[in-house]
Structures are given as structure tokens and as C-alpha cells.
Nucleic acid binder design. Structure first.
Lengths: 175, 175
DNA sequence: CACTTAATGCAAATCACTTGCAAAGGTGGA
DNA sequence: TCCACCTTTGCAAGTGATTTGCATTAAGTG
């Protein structure tokens, strides 16, 4: 109850995505070659803010780099060599990474937060399309809502307007 | 883990809205004249599906009718004459009403579900703009994402695509 | 009015997430 | 390289929202 800004503990962002990881399907592929930034580049960001580069944190960043879709804390934890660190540490680390703008939190209403390493310049703003049956997800390139955001903000006199947009449906396989 | 469709317990819908009700502000006005459908009309829907019209359910529907913004279970419960029914009953009733398509669940990431009585023909599809400071909310008339929904669905071969869209910002008062 | 079945209340259980606290581990400076 | 200092971590316990088990009560129905 003391992180994030304002009354909501969420981080108004956008998108949605998932994959529970136990139903090995066409979902996220764990363990493929690092598709994101180098680990050193990431740890450097930590160091830049005088945060310690600890073992658990490196492992966590590494797992995040391996996942192309948002992962839940549990999934992330499961992908770490047993005993690498405590679940609580994963929670704490993701909070830190989020507050540092290194990861983005997604929430698609199933009561479990999901995290993705931020890639692009604008935080790699994007959305997801989730299959409500198999939970497979598709990362959507474009963000359609930017203009809406502006018009909604202007029309209602709101400032710093952000949005969260998620799409749900039945994927081709599940139809 | 056994209601709703598919793997997600959420009901992929759209929108967002809230108001915690204790900070009496420009937020939801409880107790104004019934702005929504008559109670008899509502109970009729229940009866049509051979659901019983119980005391608690009538009270719950009544409170829902009085609120123009989505309410949390707790708020709803608090607005019922003390001792009218158990908190658990409110949870169960809302599940029922949701599954019957009579209420819509909104979720804006603070970990508490909010419900609104469904009004219009298309389920009164709309979105909300929430102030992250005072939690006041604005109901947005139009739905901007319908077209996206179609294009996203087509482009990815998904069926029955729905979306959830929420806007967050700082309201005029809080700036 | 008796009956059948759904609904309710109460207590206890889950679940995701957070917090308190003492022990362990990075880091910058001597 | 060694240390003191302050951040992190692990473990246990706590929250808050929501669900579940089960015996009891109350809507509909004939």
C-alpha cells in the first residue's frame, strides 16, 4: 500500500498477455536464445541507480529475457533453478524493476499480475490478444488507443492519461 | 475455478470504473432516484431462468440500480441495511447475475472487482476514465475499440473477440 | 400444505501478494 | 584487500479479496 502512484496499486499501462507454462503448447517458448537486451546492459541500469546486482536479481532478469510474453511471478519463479531464491524475493524484485521502469506490469483480469521486460524506447507500448481457452497470447504491434487517450483527456480535463487495453477471443486452434 | 468460460475467470468485457464510497466526493451518488430499469423488470429476468427471487437478491438488485458507477462487493454490501444478508451471499449473487448477463464486471487493476447493472441492448458497452488520485470516475459514452476488435480478430484468426479498455489519469480537481 | 431444490449463513480455506525482522551479502572507501 | 554500512534476502506470519463445505432455511410447485 505504499508503492506506485495514487490510490491504485496498479500501474496503469496497457495490454495483456499470458501463458501458464505447464500446458506446453504454442505458447511462450522458454529457453530460446536471448531475444532481448544483454544482461550486462540490464544490470548496468540497476547499478546506475545504486541498486545492488545480486544473484537473485540476475537470475530474475535472465528469466525475463527468455520470455517473449508476460509471465506471472509463479511462472518466473518456476523457471528459476530450484532454490535460487525465495518467492518473496521475486515479488520484491519485480516491484523494484517496475518502479525503475525496467519491466511492465500487465493484468488481464484473472487476478494474477504478469510482467514483461521493457524493450523499446517508449517502453515498447503494446497490447495483447489472449485466447480465453488455451491462454495462448499474441503480441499486438500497434497501439490503437493513443489518439483516444488524447481526446478523452482533453474532453474531460484529465492530465497524464494512460490506458489499458486488452483483447480476448478464441484462437484458431481452439475454435 | 468453474464458472465463466475458459481458463480465465474474468469476463472479457471492457471498460473500467470505480469509487470507493467513503471519501464522499464528486463520485457516485448513492440514493438518487432509480436511474435504471424497474426492479420488477429485473426480477422477471431471474424468474425467467427459474432462479428464485429472494430477499437478498432483491436488495442487491436495488442497490445496483441506485449506483451509476461500478461498485465493489464491499460497497454494495455496505449500502444494504445491516443484517440484510451475508457478504458471501453478495458474492454469490453477483456471480449469478454476471453469468446471466445482468451485470458486468469491471476490473481496473486494484485487485477488487466492480459491478454495474447492464442497461442497454448491447450490454451498454462503455468504458471509464478513472482518476488515480481520488478514484472518481467518468463514464465514457463511446467505445473506440470496436473497429480494432474486428481488425485484430481478422488479422489473427481469432473468433469472438472482445476487449477491455480503461483510461487512467488525474482529474481536474486533483491536478 | 407438503415437497423439491435452490439459496443462505457461518466457518474455514484459498490465493495472490505484502510485511516484520533478523541474518547474509554487495559496495564504496580506507 | 578488508570493512563498515546499508541494501537484500529468507522465513514466518499477516492481509484482503474471493471461494467452498455443509447443514439449515426458504422459494416455487402441484
Amino acid at each position: 500500500m505504499n508503492d506506485g502512484a495514487g490510490a491504485f496499486k496498479q500501474s496503469p499501462g496497457a495490454g495483456a498477455a499470458t501463458c501458464h507454462g505447464d500446458e506446453g503448447d504454442s505458447c511462450h517458448r522458454v529457453g530460446h536464445s536471448p531475444g532481448k537486451r544483454r544482461l550486462s546492459e540490464l544490470t548496468e541500469q540497476l547499478r546506475a541507480k545504486s541498486r545492488k546486482i545480486t544473484g537473485p536479481r540476475q537470475k530474475i532478469l535472465d528469466v525475463l529475457r527468455m520470455n517473449r510474453h508476460p509471465v506471472t511471478i509463479k511462472e518466473l519463479f518456476a523457471q528459476m533453478p530450484r532454490g535460487d531464491c525465495d518467492l518473496v524475493t521475486v515479488y520484491r524484485s519485480l516491484h523494484l524493476l517496475e518502479s525503475m521502469g525496467m519491466v511492465k506490469r500487465f493484468d488481464f483480469g484473472d487476478g494474477t499480475a504478469r510482467f514483461e521486460l521493457i524493450d523499446g524506447p517508449d517502453g515498447g507500448h503494446h497490447h495483447h490478444l489472449i485466447c480465453t481457452r488455451c491462454e495462448s497470447i499474441v503480441e499486438l504491434e500497434d497501439c490503437f488507443a493513443k489518439e483516444m487517450e488524447l481526446s478523452v483527456a482533453k474532453r474531460n480535463g484529465f492530465a497524464s492519461v494512460t490506458h489499458r487495453l486488452e483483447f480476448f477471443g478464441i484462437c484458431p486452434k481452439c475454435q
